[in-house]
């Protein structure tokens, strides 16, 4: 039986880390992860009335986040769209929880992800988010079999790149 639809605020609260991770990996100066995050929240809010919940809120949000981030990367959005900041979303740096070593390891991973082509990047991000191939196929619009074939190669490339870095 289908779950009743949660309120938008709840969906956002439950998925904010997922959105932030995607925005963080796609943000390239001068675009900040916070700008992308706000844009994802805005687009999600606009799409929310049409969201029926069949595909699951996670899948739905991954689609929006990837689309927003890829559009920013391909510079498909006009810059004035980004000028409206949502003051009600605050980002507070956390020093203790995320130590320097962890950050260094993340930067290695990010470097290896950005070495992949854009298409592969989107797949590897969803893979790191621990989505099943079926869900990755839903988000990307590819077939499950196609995702599986591609992921085999992408994982090898990722591992080859990251192993020497992590020592």
């Amino acid at each position: 039986m289908q779950q009743p639809k949660k309120p938008f605020e709840q969906v956002l609260e439950d998925n904010k880390e997922k959105i932030y991770r995607i925005c963080r990996v796609y943000a390239v100066t001068p675009v900040e992860p916070q700008d992308l995050f706000q844009e994802v929240v805005y687009q999600a809010w606009k799409s929310f009335p049409a969201f029926k919940g069949e595909s699951g809120e996670g899948t739905w949000l991954y689609k929006i986040a990837l689309n927003v981030c890829m559009r920013a990367k391909l510079k498909l959005e006009k810059t004035d769209n980004k000028n409206v900041r949502l003051e009600s979303i605050r980002f507070m740096p956390v020093k203790s929880a995320h130590d320097e070593l962890q950050e260094e390891r993340y930067q290695f991973l990010r470097e290896c992800i950005t070495r992949l082509n854009e298409g592969d990047q989107s797949l590897v991000i969803l893979y790191l988010e621990e989505l099943a191939y079926k869900e990755i196929a839903l988000v990307t619009g590819l077939s499950e079999n196609h995702v599986a074939v591609k992921m085999k190669r992408i994982r090898k490339m990722l591992f080859d790149c990251i192993t020497p870095k992590l020592g």
Binding site: R24, I89, F91, V94, Y106, L109
Partner: peptide, 14 residues
């Protein structure tokens, strides 16, 4: 490593 990357900032909604 990937999952912990969002721990760098705490996001609060008003």
């Amino acid at each position: 490593i990937w999952k912990s990357s969002s721990e760098i900032e705490r996001i609060k909604f008003d």
